[in-house]
Design a protein around this nucleic acid. Structure first.
Length: 569
RNA sequence: GCGCCCGUAGCUCAGCCCGGAUAGAGUAACUGACUACGAAUCAGGAGGCCGCAGGUUCAAAUCCUGCCGGGCGCACCA
C-alpha cells in the first residue's frame, strides 16, 4: 500500500502544486471499498484554486486519465474525492513477492539499528501472589518488547521486582506470630499471601502491629541478620513461584533488578539532588518542589531518613542510562502511577539529564471486578495461575468436543488457552479499565486469539493436503488472483509492516491485535468463497500461494504478540 | 477541592492522535449455509440524541470550553 501511496503522491504533487509529502498526508483510505483503494480529498485545495472540490476532482481526473499507473489502474472523481483503484495484478505480485522473499521477517525492519531500549515490565510485588492485575504489565510489556525487537532495537527486559518495603516488615511480623513452617514449605506464595491478608485484618483492631512491622523493616534496612534471613527466604520462594508463570508464558528478562538492587545507590542519588540544589527540607523531609510545574513535591526521604519509592526509581533510571545508554526507556506500569512518573521524569530533567525526555511511561487501565477494584490486601483478587489454568482447561474441553482425534491436544490447548488470556489483554486500547469476567475470558469465538489461530490452522490443514512444490513463487500464476475476496486478502496482507510500525509508535499492541482479526476475517471470507483444492491447477497454485502468504503473516503477527500459532487445533 | 483518564448499538469494544463520503466489529436474540479445502467458520436482516450543552469550521464521534456520570491520583505506602 505504501508503494501505491508513494506513486500517487509523486504524480499528484506537481499537478496541485504541493510537496509529495503533503499529498501523502492528505491521502486516505476510503470508508467503503466501492470508493476505491486510496482517496485524495480535494477540500483543502478549494480555497486556493477558488473552485468547488468536486470540480477540482473532475479536472484532476481527466488530466490523469491518459497516464498509466504502475500500481493503480483507474481513477474516478466521486464528488469531492479523487478515488484511485488499485491495479490488482501488479499489486498482488508485489505484495506476495515481498512475503515470499522475507518470510518470517516480513513485517520487520531495521529501523532501530541495534539501539538499546529498556523495558520495565511485569514487576510484581514479592510475597504477594501474582494476580490477574499483573498480567497487564506482563503481557503488554512483553508484546512491546517483541515489537521493538522486530523493528531492529536491542530490547532489554527488566523485571523491577517490588522486593523492598514495609510489606516485608508486615510479613515478618505475621510469620513470627502465626506462621507455620510446614505451610510455608508446601505452598509458599499462597501461604505468604494468607499471612499478609491476615496481618491487615488484625492490624485494623491492633495498630501496634503496624508499628512492629515498621520496626522490622527498619531492622531489615539496617542489615539485621534475622530480618535479612526472612527477607531472603521469602523473596526466593516468590521468585521460584513466578518462574513457573513466566516459563509458561515464554517470558524471560535480561535483568531481574528488584528495588533492593538499588539500595546502595540511594545515598548517591540523595547527594546528587542536594548538590544540584534542587531539593529542600520541609517538615524534616527532603523534597524537590515541583509546584512551578503544577506537580506536588517529590519526596526523596522521610523525616526519619528512610528513602521512598521515587528515590529508588531515580536510582534505577540513572543506573539504566549509565549501563545501557538507552535510546528510550519504557515503563509499562498502571495508569494510577501517572503522577509518580511525571514527577520522576521532571526530577531527572531538573538534574540536567537530557535523556529524561527518552523516558516514557506506558500506562494501562485497571482490571476490576463488577463490584469494585481488586485488592491484594483484602484478599480480593484472582490468581493469574488460576486464570491460565482454567483457560487451558476450557480449550481442552472444546478440543475434546470438536476435534477429539487431534494428535497433540495438550500443546494445542496451551496455545489456545494462553493465547486467549493474552489476546484478551492486548486487543483493546490499553488505557481502558477491564472488567474481569470469566465468561469473556473463556469465550473462544468472535474477535479472539482462537479466531486467528483457527484461520491459521485451517490454512495449514489445506497445505498439508498438497505437495510442497506448488508453493514455489511464481509471478505469472499470482496474476490469476482477481476475485474480490482474493484482492481484499492481498490488500490486508500488505498492511502488516505499517501495522507493526503503528503499534510501536503508539506503544499500542492492540493495533496489531486488531489487524490480525481483520486478516483472519478476510481469510475466512476468501475461504468460504473461493475453493482452493477444487479449482483448476493454475488457479489452485495461485490460491495456495496466497493462503500460504496469509499463513505466514498470521504467524508473524501472532508471534509479535507472544501468541502461538498451532498448525492444528 | 485540584489534576489525569474513560463515556460510541442491550452488552464488550474499534474509529478520536492527524476533522471529510451512508459511524464499524464482536457478542446476545432472530434467519440461512456442514454428502463442502476444519461450522472455534461464513452469509443475512434487526439494533445508534457517538453522555449533555455550547463553540470553531464549508464540514465535528474526532478540535476547544463548560457540565453530568464513572474510574484513578493528589508528602512521609509502593
Amino acid at each position: 500500500m505504501f508503494k501505491l501511496k508513494e506513486e500517487i503522491s509523486l504524480l499528484l504533487g506537481p499537478l496541485v502544486s504541493l510537496e509529495p509529502a503533503a499529498v501523502l498526508e492528505l491521502l486516505e483510505v476510503p470508508t467503503d471499498s466501492t470508493f476505491g483503494d486510496l482517496a485524495f480529498p480535494c477540500y483543502a485545495l478549494a480555497k486556493r484554486l477558488k473552485q468547488a472540490p468536486s470540480v477540482i476532482a473532475k479536472n484532476l481526473s481527466s488530466t490523469l486519465e491518459s497516464k498509466n499507473g504502475l500500481f493503480w489502474e483507474k481513477v474516478v472523481p466521486t464528488g469531492p474525492y479523487l478515488n484511485f483503484y488499485i491495479a490488482p495484478q501488479a499489486f498482488g505480485r508485489e505484495v506476495l513477492r515481498q512475503v515470499y522473499e522475507l518470510q518470517e521477517t516480513y513485517g520487520k525492519s531495521n529501523l532501530g539499528n541495534g539501539r538499546n531500549i529498556t523495558i520495565d515490565y511485569s514487576s510484581p510485588n514479592i510475597a504477594k501472589p501474582f494476580g490477574v492485575g499483573h498480567i497487564r504489565s506482563t503481557v503488554i510489556g512483553h508484546a512491546l518488547y517483541l515489537i521493538y525487537q522486530a523493528l531492529g532495537y536491542n530490547c532489554i527486559g527488566i523485571n523491577h521486582l517490588g522486593d523492598w518495603g514495609t510489606q516485608f516488615g508486615k510479613l515478618i511480623v505475621a510469620f513470627r506470630h502465626w506462621g507455620e513452617e510446614s505451610h510455608l514449605e508446601s505452598d509458599p506464595v499462597d501461604y505468604l499471601y494468607r499471612l499478609y491478608v491476615q496481618f491487615h485484618k488484625l492490624a485494623e483492631d491492633d495498630p501496634s502491629l503496624e508499628d512492629e512491622a515498621r520496626l522490622w523493616f527498619k531492622k531489615l534496612e539496617e542489615g539485621d541478620q534475622e530480618a535479612v534471613a526472612y527477607w531472603t527466604r521469602f523473596r526466593q520462594l516468590s521468585l521460584d513461584n513466578y518462574a513457573i508463570v513466566y516459563d509458561q508464558l515464554g517470558i524471560k528478562f535480561e535483568y531481574i533488578h528488584g528495588e533492593s538492587f538499588y539500595n546502595e545507590l540511594l545515598e548517591g542519588v540523595v547527594n546528587l539532588v542536594q548538590e544540584k540544589g534542587i531539593a529542600r527540607v520541609s517538615d524534616g523531609a527532603l523534597i524537590v518542589d515541583l509546584e512551578q510545574f503544577g506537580l506536588p513535591p517529590a519526596m526523596l526521604s522521610k523525616k526519619d531518613g528512610a528513602t521512598l519509592y521515587i528515590t529508588r526509581d531515580l536510582a534505577a533510571a540513572i543506573y539504566r542510562h549509565e549501563t545501557f545508554n538507552f535510546a528510550r526507556s519504557l515503563y509499562v506500569v498502571g495508569a494510577e502511577q501517572e503522577l509518580h512518573f511525571k514527577q520522576l521524569f521532571k526530577v531527572l530533567e531538573l538534574l540536567g539529564f537530557t535523556w529524561a525526555s527518552d523516558c516514557v511511561h506506558i500506562p494501562f487501565g485497571l482490571i476490576r471486578f463488577k463490584e469494585g477494584r481488586m485488592s491484594t490486601r483484602a484478599g480480593k483478587t484472582i490468581l493469574l495461575e488460576e486464570v491460565l489454568q482454567r483457560s487451558i482447561e476450557m480449550a481442552r474441553e472444546i478440543i475434546e468436543e470438536k476435534n477429539p482425534s487431534l494428535p497433540n491436544k495438550e500443546s494445542a490447548a496451551e496455545a489456545i488457552g494462553l493465547g486467549a488470556v493474552r489476546f484478551g489483554d492486548l486487543s483493546n486500547d490499553r488505557i481502558k479499565n477491564i472488567e474481569f469476567d470469566w465468561e469473556k475470558v473463556l469465550d473462544f469465538s468472535g474477535e479472539t486469539a482462537a479466531y486467528i489461530q483457527y484461520a491459521h490452522a485451517r490454512i495449514c490443514s489445506i497445505l498439508r493436503k498438497t505437495s510442497a512444490e506448488n508453493l514455489r513463487w511464481d509471478e505469472k500464476t499470482v496474476s490469476l488472483l482477481i476475485e474480490e475476496e482474493e484482492l481484499t486478502l492481498i490488500k490486508t496482507i500488505a498492511q502488516l509492516p505499517e501495522k507493526v510500525m503503528a503499534a510501536a509508535d503508539g506503544y499500542r499492541p492492540s493495533l496489531l491485535a486488531r489487524y490480525l482479526v481483520d486478516l483472519a476475517r478476510e481469510f475466512n471470507r476468501f475461504y468460504h468463497h473461493c475453493p482452493v483444492l477444487n479449482s483448476e491447477p493454475q488457479l489452485q497454485r495461485a490460491r495456495l500461494l496466497l493462503i500460504n502468504a496469509a499463513r505466514q503473516v498470521l504467524s508473524n503477527g501472532l508471534s509479535l504478540l507472544g501468541i502461538a500459532a498451532p498448525e492444528e487445533m
